[in-house]
Amino acid sequence: MPSATTKLPAGPHLPTPCFGATTGSWRTHRPVIDASLCNHCLLCWLYCPEGCIERGEKLKVNLDFCKGCGICAHECPRRAINMLEEA
């Protein structure tokens, strides 16, 4: 019997996004980083429970998986992250 099983790994262990499923739609508030205030201390990157802060010249938020918990905004010592309500 042909089955998708043959293409799947043994056990549900896969790179993200697993099975194309994202969790960003669970969010009601989105973090917005003010680059003029950010000094790259990376506390947001450290504290984000979903690993959604992407490092680089400018920090970015992976909105496919950010659930809008606001921990990054809460932890930011320079108040460079604001939680913006989404429509």
């Binding site: 998708a4 099983t5 043994a10 056990g11 549900p12 262990h13 896969l14 697993c18 499923a21």
Partner: peptide
């Protein structure tokens, strides 16, 4: 193990699955 923890090739262990794929894994 075919899939083991490897920092160079990160994966989600024990990912969630919708009804169709859940059944596939259980069949496996």
């Amino acid at each position: 193990l075919p899939v083991a923890l490897d920092v160079e090739n990160p994966v989600v262990f024990c990912a969630g699955a919708g009804p169709e794929l859940y059944t596939e894994f259980k069949y496996q």
